[in-house]
C-alpha cells in the first residue's frame, strides 16, 4: 500500500473514530448513541487493519461490535427510552467522567511510542509480521487442535441450552 494512501486512510479512520465517539456520548436517544458506538468500533477495527493487526481487527468486530454491543442493547431494552431521551443528556457526575477521560488521554500521550511509524508494507514497525492471522490460525489448528475441538462441544451445549430455555412448554 502506498504510504500516502495509507496515511489518508489512517487520518480518515482516526477522525471518524473521534467524531463518532463524541456523537455517541452527546446523543439524547440511547439507541442513537449505540449506533454511533457501533460506528466507532468499526473504525477502530479499520485502524487495527491498517497497522497489520488483522487478528485484533477481527476480534474487535466479533467481540466488541458483536458481543459487547449486544450486551449494551440488552441493557437498553430495560430502559424507558422516551423518558431517557427527554431527560438531560448528561448525569450529575459528568465533570468527573470528563476528567477521567482527559487523564486517560494524557496517560496515553505520556506513554506513547515515538518510534511507531507505518512501514512500507503497512504493518507497525517492530510488530508481528503481516499475516498474524495466519499464525493464530496455525496455532489453533495444530498445537491447540484438541481444545478447539472441545470448544465445539461447548457451543453444542449452549445450543441445546437455548432450545431448553426457548421451548414454549415442556410436555405436561
Amino acid at each position: 500500500m502506498p504510504i500516502l494512501a495509507g496515511q489518508i486512510a489512517f487520518y480518515y479512520l482516526a477522525a471518524a473514530s473521534v467524531a463518532s465517539a463524541i456523537l455517541a456520548v452527546t446523543r439524547r436517544n440511547p439507541a442513537h448513541s449505540m449506533l454511533w458506538v457501533l460506528a466507532l468500533f468499526m473504525h477502530v477495527a479499520g485502524i487495527f487493519l491498517l497497522v497489520g493487526a488483522e487478528f485484533l481487527a477481527g476480534v474487535q468486530v466479533i467481540v466488541y461490535a458483536g458481543a459487547i454491543l449486544v450486551f449494551y442493547l440488552f441493557v437498553l431494552m430495560l430502559l424507558d427510552l422516551p423518558r431517557e431521551a427527554a431527560g438531560p443528556p448528561f448525569g450529575a457526575h459528568w465533570p468527573l467522567c470528563a476528567a477521567a477521560g482527559l487523564i486517560f488521554a494524557a496517560l496515553l500521550w505520556y506513554a506513547r511510542e515515538p518510534g511507531l511509524v507505518l512501514t512500507a508494507d503497512g504493518s507497525a514497525a517492530g510488530g508481528p509480521p503481516r499475516g498474524s492471522l495466519l499464525a493464530v490460525g496455525t496455532a489453533l489448528f495444530t498445537l491447540f487442535a484438541l481444545p478447539f475441538e472441545i470448544a465445539s462441544l461447548i457451543l453444542l451445549a449452549a445450543i441445546v441450552g437455548t432450545v431448553v430455555v426457548a421451548k414454549r412448554k415442556t410436555e405436561s
Partner: peptide, 20 residues
C-alpha cells in the same frame, strides 16, 4: 487452555441445568 475449556464446558452445562 485445556483446563479453561473444560471448566467452560462444565459451567455452561450447569448454568442450563440449574434453571431446568
Amino acid at each position: 487452555i485445556t483446563i479453561f475449556i473444560g471448566l467452560e464446558t462444565m459451567a455452561v452445562s450447569f448454568y442450563i441445568l440449574a434453571g431446568f
